[in-house]
Every structure is written in structure tokens, then in C-alpha cells.
């Protein structure tokens, strides 16, 4: 079996995978940054008392979570041009990932904020803090700690979801695997290499999360009573 596996071809294609790796990395970073922004805005809207702000956020989050990313991507890529909006494919890809992940991130942040006990909110209120002071000084610093692990999970999902961009011919990692597979008819070599690259990204993200947890000074929170 292994005698048919051509490591030489993989080495030959390494520059292509290098480019794919770099593309997946940077477009994931940009998408995740966008997703964080989308998520924070959605979550802020969702936590307001005003229905006018809450409802659009809820509908958006449901719509995104209920539909496949591929359908959303195809809508933006094939649908929008027919409606007169033509965007470059890379931009469409990043937009789709950011809009999609943003909905999930909004829920992650909301769960983090709601996990902070009512007593913390009341302590802030009782000491005369305004809503934004309570958020900034009391709630968010604690919520960030509990949101790091699920945010890492979402970042990993986003990196893997970015593979779908190969379908709108964005030159990223999975696209590199497809090229090797179709040029030389070597799908095993192509996709194993692709998978290995994703694994490297995965471990990179994991150590980044561990580092940021330390940097934020995350310590076990728990008060004795």
C-alpha cells in the first residue's frame, strides 16, 4: 500500500501547500476578527431590553444557525452578483465565514455574560456603577475567562469551515489538496497533506489559547461561602 504513496510528489507540491497554508491562516485570522466584531455587536443587541434591537439579532442568529454554511456561501457568491452586487471571491469567502461564525460567537459571549452570578451585578449596582461600568469592570473581565475555551472551539471550527472556500476557488489549503489530487490523480497524497496542515493549525491555535489564558491571568474563580 505505502509503496504507492508518493512522498516525492508531496515534496514537489510543498510550495503550493505553503501558499495554501498561509492563505488559510490569514483569511482565518481576518474572518475570526470579523466574526468577533459581528458577535460582540449581535450579543450587545441581544442583551438589550429593547425589542427593536433584540429581535433582529435573534432572527439573524437563528437564520445563520439553522442554515448550512455552504448555502450561505453560495448565496453570497452566486446569489449576490445576480442581485447586482459583485464582490471578489476572497472577500465573499471571508465575509461568509465572519457572518456565520459571528452568530455562534454572539451566543458564546452571551452565555459567558449570563454565567456571571446575579450577585456580581448587584454588587456593581449597589456601589453606584452605571451599566457600562459594570460591564467593563465587573462582568466582562469575568466573562472573558469563561469564554476562552468555547471561543477556541469556534476558532477551530472556523479554520476547518474555511475549507469550503475551495468551492468558490479561493486558493487555500483544501484547494491545494484538490490541485494535487486532480493534476496527478493523487487524492491520498493531496488530502493527507492538507489534513496534516490543518493539524498544525489546530495545535497552533490550542497553544495560543493556553497562552492568552495565562496572559489574561485566568485563575480558578470560586468564592468560599
Amino acid at each position: 500500500m505505502l509503496e504507492n504513496f508518493s512522498f516525492r510528489t508531496i515534496v514537489e507540491y510543498l510550495p503550493l501547500f505553503g501558499q495554501g497554508f498561509a492563505a488559510t491562516l490569514w483569511l482565518s485570522i481576518v474572518s475570526f476578527a470579523g466574526a468577533l466584531a459581528v458577535g460582540i455587536i449581535l450579543c450587545a443587541m441581544n442583551l438589550q431590553r429593547s425589542r427593536l434591537l433584540q429581535l433582529p439579532a435573534k432572527i439573524y442568529i437563528d437564520a445563520i444557525r439553522a442554515t448550512p454554511l455552504l448555502a450561505q456561501l453560495y448565496f453570497l457568491y452566486f446569489g449576490l452578483p445576480r442581485l447586482g452586487v459583485v464582490l471578489p471571491e476572497l472577500f465573499v469567502g471571508i465575509l461568509a465565514l465572519a457572518l456565520n461564525s459571528g452568530a455562534y460567537i454572539a451566543e458564546i459571549i452571551r452565555a459567558g455574560i449570563l454565567s456571571i452570578s446575579r450577585g456580581q451585578v448587584e454588587a456593581g449596582i449597589a456601589s453606584g456603577m452605571t451599566y457600562s461600568q459594570r460591564m467593563r469592570l465587573v462582568i466582562l473581565p469575568q466573562a472573558i475567562r469563561v469564554t476562552i475555551p468555547p471561543l477556541l472551539g469556534q476558532a477551530i471550527v472556523l479554520v476547518k469551515d474555511s475549507a469550503l472556500l475551495s468551492l468558490i476557488s479561493v486558493a487555500e489549503l483544501t484547494r491545494a489538496g484538490q490541485l494535487l489530487a486532480s493534476d496527478r490523480f493523487m487524492p491520498a497524497e493531496g488530502f493527507v497533506t492538507t489534513a496534516a496542515c490543518y493539524l498544525v493549525l489546530y495545535y497552533g491555535l490550542k497553544s495560543l489559547a493556553a497562552f492568552s489564558a495565562r496572559w489574561l491571568g485566568v485563575r480558578p474563580i470560586g468564592s468560599r461561602t
Binding site: 456580581q120 448587584e122 469575568q142 485563575r219
Partner: peptide
Amino acid sequence: TEIGFVFQAFNLYPH
């Protein structure tokens, strides 16, 4: 700000 409130569960900021 003129009224101090002490809670049964303390509610100190754990961070």
C-alpha cells in the same frame, strides 16, 4: 454612592 450595601453572599469581585 451614598448607600453601602453588604450582601449575605459577600459578592466580592473574584477577579
